[in-house]
Design a protein around this nucleic acid. Structure first.
Lengths: 111, 111
DNA sequence: TGACCTTATGTTAATCATAACATAAGGTCT
DNA sequence: AGACCTTATGTTATGATTAACATAAGGTCA
């Protein structure tokens, strides 16, 4: 038995700003500089990736990527800051939750 | 912007043992003594509730409810222990995650 | 010019999760 | 006997999410 926890950054109206999937997208874009490459890497359709980015931008209120037909796509400063903050948030939450889990369910076993 | 986090107890094979939905089911059964009443209370179909209980029992490896056609349904001792442990786990994880969120995103505002 | 990249968007198809319906066995109460 | 509870399960719709397909504009390179 183990713990699986997930964290989402949510806008005031309930829309998703960041989750683990969108983190993976931003990280891939940062690496590849292309939405197309990101879609292939994450085995998603171009449209899925693009729609999630647009959703994040809408809920976040600021652009997170700069998309250019010639030079490709890169993160904005605010997009990079959002990515890094969420990554740290997620890491620390997972560690904290795991500590709680070990405290309540010691020895990994039964209830 | 706010944080929404969720916690699941997962069996070794990946099956779900507990989540917030199943916690609500066990709590309602404990209160009402009936799967039928629970289904109405949670606005779910009887089958949905029943299937989730069976799934939990399968993944947990032990029965969590005692169902009787005459006297209704009540929690087993192990079911009650699981419910209470998960409730405490979830509460503490949410508090811990919220502390992390406030630390990384102070002042509630922008990135 | 034509094949191949990129972003961008709409439309349609397929898939998956859930809801709804049906039925059965068992029992109580009027 | 009939109406109403309960658990239990299978089958069938319905709905929602996602995948797939199509198209367009813009540019590069051979």
């Amino acid at each position: 038995m183990k713990l699986r926890s997930s964290q989402f950054l949510i806008a005031d109206d309930g829309g998703i700003i960041m989750g683990s999937g969108r983190l993976a997208i931003l990280e891939s874009i940062d690496r590849t500089g292309s939405i197309n490459q990101t879609a292939k890497e994450l085995k998603m359709s171009y449209k899925s990736v693009w729609s999630k980015i647009k959703s994040t931008e809408k809920n976040f209120g600021k652009p997170v990527v700069l998309a250019d037909k010639i030079t490709g796509t890169k993160l904005t400063d605010e997009g990079r800051a959002l990515m890094e903050c969420y990554r740290e948030l997620k890491d620390r939450c997972i560690r904290a939750d795991d500590d709680v889990f070990k405290d309540i369910f010691p020895g990994r076993g039964e209830a």
